[in-house]
Structure formats: structure tokens, C-alpha cells
């Protein structure tokens, strides 16, 4: 069975997710928090760039591109299976 809690980079395209934790460094964390990527917030993984590139998500109605290094540190919960 698929795990419920995953890293953002491991999620499938189109999955509805809920942010659990952001484990990145201080600066990136503050930046993400300012942009609304906070624990409990719902996001959708919109696409992922080829060649292990960045991830695009929809948060609070807008698209945000996040580098893969940070996306790997965003821990999410799959919403639809809750």
C-alpha cells in the first residue's frame, strides 16, 4: 500500500496534499511560510520538471515553483485517502 506520509517530490502529479512539515533551512522555511506553505495548508502538486527538476504546486490558488532540494524537505500527507 502507498504510504500516506511522503516527501513532496515523491507524490504523484495531481495529488491533493496537506503540508505536515517543512524541514528546510531557516531562510527557505521563512520564505515558504510567507508564501503560505505552512503546516495544515492544502496544496496540489501540479507538475514536476523533467531531469529531476523543480516541482510546481498550487497553494492558495496560485502556482509556485519550488526547487527540488526544498521540495524534498516538504513532508506532506495524502488528502484523498484520509
Amino acid at each position: 500500500m502507498e504510504p500516506l506520509i511522503k516527501r513532496l517530490i515523491d507524490c504523484l502529479i495531481g495529488e491533493k496534499l496537506k503540508v505536515l512539515r517543512v524541514n528546510s533551512g531557516y531562510h527557505a522555511k521563512r520564505r515558504l511560510a510567507n508564501l503560505g506553505i505552512l503546516p495544515g495548508v492544502q496544496i496540489i502538486k501540479k507538475k514536476a520538471a523533467p531531469f529531476r527538476g523543480p516541482v510546481e504546486i498550487i497553494v492558495k490558488g496560485t502556482s509556485l515553483v519550488i526547487g527540488r532540494g526544498i521540495a524534498a524537505r516538504i513532508i506532506v500527507l495524502r488528502e484523498n485517502s484520509k
Binding site: 509556485l64 515553483v65 532540494g69
Partner: peptide, 10 residues
């Protein structure tokens, strides 16, 4: 190297 965090507009 810092990571990319960027808003993409329609």
C-alpha cells in the same frame, strides 16, 4: 546555491 522559490503566473 540557494533553491528556487518562484511564483508562476498565468
Amino acid at each position: 546555491c540557494t533553491e528556487l522559490i518562484m511564483e508562476v503566473h498565468q
